[in-house]
Amino acid sequence: MKRFVLKKYDLKYIREELIIHPLNIILLFFISTSSIIFEADLTINFHETAIPFFIISASGIAIYFLIRWIIKDRIKSAILLTAILFITLFFRDIYELLAYSGVTKLVSDYLIFVSELFFAIIIVVLILTPIIIWLYKSKRKLLKLNSYLNLLTTIFLLIEIIGLEFIEVTKVELKNKIDIKEPLDEITSKPDVYFIILDGYTGFSGLQKYWNFNNNDLKKFLNNSGFFIAENGKTIYNVTNYSIASTLNMSELNFEVDNLYAKSCYLSLANIIKKNIVVEFFNEVGYDFINLSFHDIYDTMKFYQDIYFLKSGNIYQSRTIYGHLYEIQNEINADMACINLDIFNRLKTIQNSSNGEPTFIYAHITKPHPP
């Protein structure tokens, strides 16, 4: 019986012919992106991770065979696929690097006719075109480059995996977690409750003081309709998500100011808002909940997608070129005036369509303003 012996030549052949760098890029993307969830001290949702992983992997395989059908070389096809995966999956990082270096500002200042959508396409074309031309014209098999990419991506992947053990939690927490202990049988009056946020709308005193505008008609209407107006109310946070998380949990927040816009903080804020104690209490006392905001709250989906905080939504999608283009398209097509009018119309008809149960309505009206 012959014994199988792996020769040195065979090892070299395997090392040069083996292709793992496209898979490494995909794994690197998911592990590095998932680390943000760990930073927020949250648990990874299997479905939210598995579905994008399946879509990206299946797309990668399809693109590989398409490229190979065109250029008839498995190594070159894999190298080009790796380049495509890197650009498309880490597009947000590339774009932010260009923004940090001042390139995007230079383009917007001197080429005002170039839209953000067109600029994103230019980035992809400028990076991929020379790679495609070089691969097409090269007569070499590029086995050493293939080995180098295998090694390089494996090293980065191992660094990312090891780094998971040293992640520092960067999240937002409630300073005082309130426990509403109200005997349910003692609650006899259950009126409908409207929690309406006019986000970015100047208060009555501010309009009068700075713009010499008297807005008493609105004030009178709200008072006559039984609304409570926090006339001199001021938020201690200058970002909507922080304010809503604090309000719906009746507590101030603990977080590092330097991490105000950290992605992990936005993830933890989304979780705090989704599982807030105010809506939980109203549910316990028999209220129906109607969500007319851009937040997911318990089992109710957001009513609309806010253009300012879209990046803090699906964390895997937002990092890719698809997420970036989706944001641009959403910002172009999002007609906040129509959305706001739709919310106001629904507020007028909610009482008529009620099933007899008391209702807690959260309506978030977003006025045009910088994020």
Rank of each mutant, 00 (worst) to 15 (best):
T153R: 03
Y9M: 10
Y9N: 14
D306N: 11
K72C: 03
I361P: 00
F119Y: 14
N352Q: 10
G60S: 10
L6A: 13
S115D: 12
N345H: 12
A270E: 10
S353P: 03
I123P: 02
Y237M: 05
T153I: 02
G323T: 10
I197Q: 04
Y194W: 08
F30A: 06
I332C: 03
I56M: 05
I121V: 15
I321S: 03
E280V: 04
G356Q: 05
F281R: 04
I133D: 05
T188I: 11
P52Y: 03
F213M: 09
A363M: 03
E357N: 12
A120P: 00
T88H: 06
K302H: 12
L269Y: 01
A58M: 11
I328Y: 04
V124A: 08
I315N: 05
V169W: 07
N223M: 10
N223V: 14
R3P: 05
N271G: 01
N223G: 08
V278K: 01
D41T: 02
D288S: 07
A50E: 06
E16S: 10
V193Q: 04
V257D: 07
E39R: 08
L6F: 15
I123R: 03
Y308G: 06
I229D: 05
H295I: 02
L325E: 07
H21C: 01
K234D: 09
T154F: 09
E231W: 02
I365M: 08
I122N: 11
N333S: 12
I332D: 14
H364K: 09
K263Y: 07
I61R: 01
S138D: 14
